Amino acid sequence: MTTLDTVTGILRQWADRNHAAPGTAESLVNALSAELRGGQAPDRFFAPPVVVHAFLTDNFAEDVVLRYQRAVGDQAVWEAARDQRTDAADRQLDDPRRADIVRAAADRIDPLKGGGGPYPASLIRLGKTTAATTPGTQE
C-alpha cells in the first residue's frame, strides 16, 4: 500500500460521506480542502498527535486511519533503516564485520525491502486506553 493509495482512500471516503459527485483526485482535494479550512481540521504544523488522531478517527473509518498510520510508520522505519546503513558505511573501515551486521539489521526492518512491516501491525488508539496514551497527554 502506497501513500498515494492511502490518500486516495481518504478522499474517496470523504466523497462518499459528503455525497460528493465522483471527480478527479484534484477536484476532491480542492473540495475537501475548502471544507477543512472552515476550522474543522487541526493545524497540521502545531497540533499534537492526539488531536490529529482524534480528528482522523472521528472523520474516517478504521481501515483508512490504519493505512494512514502505516504510511507514516513505514516512512519513519525506512528513515531509521537508511540511518543504520549510513552508520554501517561509516564503520566499514574500522570494523567490517560490525558494519555487515548493522546493514543486515537495517535490511530486516526496512519495509521497502520487504523485510519488515507493516508498521504498525494494528491500529494505534491514542487517548483511548492508558497503555496506548502517549506520556503527557490527557485521556
Rank of each mutant, 00 (worst) to 15 (best):
R91Q: 01
R37P: 00
H19D: 12
W78S: 07
L93I: 02
P42G: 02
R91V: 02
R97G: 14
A76G: 06
T129G: 12
A89H: 06
R12M: 14
R125S: 09
G73M: 10
R97L: 13
V102H: 00
A21W: 02
G39A: 07
R98F: 06
V102M: 04
E139N: 11
N59D: 11
D90H: 10
E79N: 12
T130G: 08
A131T: 06
G117T: 05
L4V: 08
E62D: 15
R85P: 08
A99L: 10
R67I: 02
Q138N: 15
R103H: 15
Y68P: 07
L112I: 04
G114S: 03
L126V: 03
P118L: 01
P120D: 12
A131L: 07
L28T: 04
D94W: 05
L4W: 05
A47H: 06
G73N: 03
R44P: 08
R67V: 02
P42Y: 04
V52P: 01
F60S: 06
D63M: 03
D74I: 00
V29K: 08
R98L: 14
A105D: 09
A25G: 13
A20T: 09
R44S: 10
Q69M: 15
A76Y: 10
I124P: 01
G115K: 00
A80Y: 09
R85S: 08
D100V: 07
T86S: 13
L11K: 01
G73K: 07
P120T: 09
A54H: 09
E79S: 10
R108S: 08
G115W: 04
A80E: 14
I101H: 02
A132L: 05
P22W: 01
P22N: 00
A71N: 12
P118K: 11
N18W: 09
P42H: 15
P49E: 00
A80M: 13
A54T: 14
E26Y: 00
S27H: 13
T57K: 02
G116C: 13
Q40E: 12
A104V: 03
L36H: 03
P120Q: 10
W14G: 07
L4H: 08
Y68A: 14
H19C: 02
E35C: 15
L11N: 04
L28A: 05
M1E: 11
V72Y: 11
G117N: 04
R70L: 11
T134E: 08
L28E: 00
V64G: 01
R91E: 13
Q40C: 02
N30R: 08
D74R: 04
Q138I: 12
Q75L: 15
R82G: 10
P48V: 06
G38C: 10
S122Y: 05
E35R: 05
A104Y: 08
P118V: 06
R85F: 12
A61F: 06
A21L: 06
D83W: 06
V51R: 14
L112P: 00
R108L: 13
V51H: 05
D94Y: 05
Q92R: 15
T130F: 05
L123P: 05
L93C: 05
T137W: 09
V102Q: 12
G38E: 14
D74F: 02
